[in-house]
């Protein structure tokens, strides 16, 4: 890039070598716990307590996973997590983009006040209403029901804010005006013009939401009190809750609960990181 001023000679450069070394160390530290999960998850419990501890995968993969299945219904937890995360993601994409469209392109009295209120709600941590929220869910009869996880998450302030920014940048006002003159209804404009334009924003917000719902812990552990219905996070916690912890079994469950999301992440990695860097600070 800066060819006018060569700051170093071609060939070996000590500082660059050191930079690569430190980046490799950083990458190894980041990836090691994933590898370690797999190592312990495929070894017997005794191997964890050996000195030095096992550093290579063992042969107990199947047996450890069978032990996981004895403790929790892994596949129904997987299904519950998948349903919760998918339905919420679809809801968030639809409702947040619709509201974002209204804030970006429609005119109605009090619009700025409502938008200001929306921004204020982003600063309020949800934990503060944890107990009354739990009471509402109890009143509705949604305790130990996936509805308790899905419905409160169907639309959020961050998503609306993000969609509004994206839509006001991506769609020029005259496109919107001419569609109106042609007699398109607002929903037709949203569906035929806005949605096809904001697909990149959909993919990023979709992955963020899916990931958040997949990993959420505090709320599921509060409203799913019965062992018959669990999400993966609640299930791996109950594995860890057993009095005499068999770490081979626990980490086997943890590993397989993490794998699906890692696959989703690796598939969408490019979109995700670039979308995050564009959208997070504006």
């Amino acid at each position: 890039m800066q060819q006018t001023v060569p700051t170093h000679k071609k060939g070996f450069s000590l500082s660059r070598f050191m930079i690569y070394v430190s980046l490799w160390i950083g990458a190894l530290i980041s990836l090691f716990p994933f590898y370690w999960m797999f190592v312990i998850g495929t070894n017997t419990a005794d191997k964890v307590n050996e000195t030095p501890p096992a550093l290579l995968p063992g042969s107990e993969m199947v047996r450890n996973f069978m032990k996981v299945m004895e403790q929790v219904d892994f596949f129904s937890a997987l299904a519950n997590t998948f349903i919760t995360a998918s339905v919420t993601t679809i809801g968030v994409l639809f409702l947040c983009s619709l509201a974002g469209f209204a804030f970006a392109k429609l005119n109605f009295p009090g619009k700025n006040i409502w938008f200001g209120l929306l921004l204020v709600t982003m600063m309020v941590p949800t934990q503060l209403g944890l107990i009354p929220s739990y009471m509402i869910i109890t009143e509705l009869g949604w305790l130990n029901d996936l509805k308790a996880l899905i419905v409160p998450g169907l639309v959020n302030a961050f998503g609306v804010f993000w969609m509004r920014q994206y839509i006001s940048d991506a769609i020029p006002d005259d496109v919107f005006d001419s569609a109106k003159i042609d007699g398109c209804s607002h929903f037709r404009i949203y569906w035929n013009i806005v949605v096809p334009t904001i697909l990149p924003a959909f993919s990023t917000l979709g992955i963020i939401t899916f990931m958040f719902m997949w990993n959420d812990f505090l709320w599921p552990v509060t409203v799913l009190t019965d062992n018959s219905i669990q999400t993966l996070q609640v299930a791996i916690r109950s594995l860890n809750d057993v009095r005499f912890t068999d770490y081979g079994m626990v980490l086997s469950g943890t590993f397989w609960a993490t794998v699906p999301l890692v696959i989703v992440f690796l598939l969408f990695n490019k979109w995700f990181i670039s979308g995050l860097t564009q959208g997070s600070i504006k």
Partner: peptide
């Protein structure tokens, strides 16, 4: 990408 629960267990 890892859940907090998984991080804490590992």
């Amino acid at each position: 990408v890892t859940s907090v629960a998984a991080v804490a267990i590992v």
